[in-house]
């Protein structure tokens, strides 16, 4: 069924291969320029009326972000994920808040957590859950969570740790002999 839909759509949209995860769940790559028209057709013609989620993946090695639009057809109990790729160096997505008002919230979250811009999306530049955040967007993979934690929060007094290897060498081989 998903395959039929894919075959039907790929004549008019630039789509990648269909990746079927389950009988009722599949994903497909879409050219950014075709995204909006495809979302509208899926919503209005093919029954994918619900935007389940909009999220991102940081493919840092490939220098790009992936946006995933998970669409759900409630009647047919089917989900289709559309994947759009953005240049990581200049990450700008296209807002769809006019298609689903809830998208504005997702886009505000993505702006904050990944630093992906969605020009025109309502309140997109307002703080979402991070208050007073000045560091790199924390869901980017080059964000060093541990370093941030260590800089931001001080340790309680008296903390001391032991490296297993050095501890064993000291206890079992105190002479340091090879």
């Amino acid at each position: 069924m998903m395959r039929d839909l894919h075959d039907h759509l790929k004549t008019r949209y630039r789509l990648g291969d269909l990746a079927e995860r389950r009988a009722n769940l599949a994903f497909v790559d879409v050219a950014r320029a075709d995204l909006r028209a495809l979302l509208v057709e899926l919503r209005d013609v093919h029954g994918f009326t619900h935007l389940s989620l909009l999220t991102a993946v940081d493919w840092i090695e490939e220098g790009r972000f992936q946006l995933t639009y998970l669409m759900n057809n409630r009647t047919a109990n089917r989900s289709l994920g559309l994947r759009v790729f953005l240049d990581r160096a200049d990450p700008v997505g296209d807002t769809i808040h006019d298609l689903w008002p809830t998208a504005a919230t997702y886009q505000r979250e993505l702006r904050e957590m990944f630093g992906i811009a969605f020009p025109g999306s309502p309140r997109v530049d307002e703080e979402f859950i991070l208050e007073g955040w000045t560091d790199m967007p924390p869901y980017r993979r080059d964000f060093d969570t541990l370093a941030y934690s260590q800089q931001t929060f001080s340790d309680r007094e008296g903390r001391e740790t032991h490296d297993p290897r050095a501890h064993m060498a000291k206890k079992l081989n105190p002479e340091g002999q090879r």
Binding site: H162, M168, K171
Partner: peptide, 27 residues
Amino acid sequence: QNAAIDMVPVSAPVDGDSGLRPKIDYG
């Protein structure tokens, strides 16, 4: 990712066991 864990000596090390155990700072 929060540097909440220290490895602290609990027993004598033996082959395959450092004798250390995790101590967690719930702060």
